[in-house]
Write a protein that binds this DNA or RNA. Structure first.
Length: 153
DNA sequence: GCCAACGTTGGC
DNA sequence: GCCAACGTTGGC
């Protein structure tokens, strides 16, 4: 069982959008970064938990917890020219991009902001989110860091 | 809107 | 395989 942090811009897809989705589930599509894809492909398992992180907004931070409810499978939005993340180089017979299904679990009791996470950098050594220049939209979280972050809640 | 820090692309 | 140009991410 692994732990993750997944980023989303709340204007595009927020924790409430996931909560209100049919079955409280949705596809985590649009990942177009090889490192993030490889995490999904190689390390994500059904039953894993992930922090839902709001980025590019007034107060970026962790807003909830969701569950990974599928393994990685082809991201069909890469095949559709009308999709924002269409990639003509992704061959349906050999898909370049993958996605997983995620299910809403709960919101955190409050927003655990990025600034607060940074204030606790001493307890979060090597946490990818606060590493310099980090741009990953999917990143692993160690059990130790997961548990510590939840004590901030 | 700015811009630093990346990742990707493509010419050579 | 190098690397400059370009595009994107995401905090501020």
């Amino acid at each position: 069982m692994n732990y993750w942090l997944i980023k989303s811009e709340p204007d595009a897809f927020s924790i409430d959008d996931l909560k209100n989705a049919p079955g409280k589930k949705d596809h985590w599509d649009g990942i177009r970064n090889y490192q993030a894809r490889n995490f999904m492909r190689d390390d994500m398992q059904k039953g894993d938990l992930a922090f839902f992180y709001h980025s590019s907004c007034a107060t970026p931070g962790i807003v909830g917890i969701c569950e990974i409810v599928s393994g990685a499978y082809p991201d069909h939005t890469a095949f559709d020219p009308s999709e924002k993340y269409f990639d003509p180089k992704s061959d349906p017979d050999n898909p370049r991009w993958l996605m997983v299904d995620v299910k809403y679990r709960r919101k955190t009791k409050r927003l655990i902001s990025l600034s607060e996470i940074k204030e606790n950098a001493g307890r979060l050594e090597d946490f990818a989110l606060i590493r310099r220049g980090n741009r990953l939209s999917i990143m692993p979280v160690s059990k130790k860091h997961w548990d510590f972050i939840l004590t901030l809640e």
